[in-house]
């Protein structure tokens, strides 16, 4: 942008200005659930210094945050709390699944851990690693910024706030290898 032009004005779009401001002042809501949260602290600390990207102000109240960093494995019990916190964040908002556990359940392939937070949250960026390096978290933040600059428009704000259809799935059975019996809720009673 040429500020030294003699005319004294420049033309741009509202989106360009707003997205520039929004992407450089993301306020993360640190949802630290396990060891990934330690790397998330390093990401916020002086060495990796997320302040370079304008996100140093971690907000521990969801009402002041617009980026949720879900760091660590999420149990079925905790999922309800996370969803509640997410629901309290004002639009527009973004979500990062940090690490293998938050993205897929990771090594916790068992009954108590949600196999990926995308089962109940709209995740924008997934970070691989166990735990990811703070650089990877920074990179995810840059991806979110990229997403805001290129995909988000203030016109979306009109759409936000409207009621949207609830996505449903029909399949309640586990994904099983071929030939295995399907596990149903009364499996124990039939034995």
């Amino acid at each position: 942008m040429a500020f030294d032009m003699k005319e004294g004005y420049l033309t741009t779009t509202v989106d360009a200005v707003l997205n520039w401001a929004r992407s450089n002042s993301l306020m993360p809501m640190p949802m630290g659930l396990a060891c990934c949260a330690i790397e998330m602290m390093a990401f916020a600390g002086p060495k990796y210094d997320v302040a370079r990207f304008g996100s140093e102000a971690m907000r521990f109240s969801p009402r002041q945050a617009d980026l949720m960093l879900v760091a660590g494995w999420c149990s079925f019990k905790m999922a309800h709390t996370i969803r509640r916190v997410w629901d309290q964040m004002p639009d527009p908002k973004w979500c990062v699944a940090m690490g293998a556990c938050a993205s897929t359940g990771g090594m916790h392939r068992c009954y108590g851990v949600v196999q990926g937070i995308d089962n109940f949250l709209p995740v924008d960026v997934y970070i691989s690693g166990c735990p990811p390096r703070p650089e990877a978290v920074l990179h995810a933040l840059m991806d979110i910024q990229e997403k805001i600059r290129n995909e988000y428009s203030v016109v979306d704000d009109y759409e936000f706030g409207q009621e949207q259809p609830v996505p449903t799935t029909q399949n309640n059975a586990l994904l099983l290898p071929e030939g295995e019996t399907i596990i149903t809720p009364n499996v124990l009673e039939n034995q």
Binding site: I82, R84, N119, F120, E159, Q164, V166, P167
Partner: peptide, 28 residues
């Protein structure tokens, strides 16, 4: 699992994402 929208029903499918469910970005 929690509902996909604040007022929606609980998600009974533990692998909703694998079965094609995509939580909506925003809601009422």
């Amino acid at each position: 699992l929690p509902p996909q929208t604040p007022r929606g029903p609980l998600t009974m499918d533990p692998y909703a994402a694998a079965h094609g469910s995509k939580p909506v970005k925003s809601y009422e």
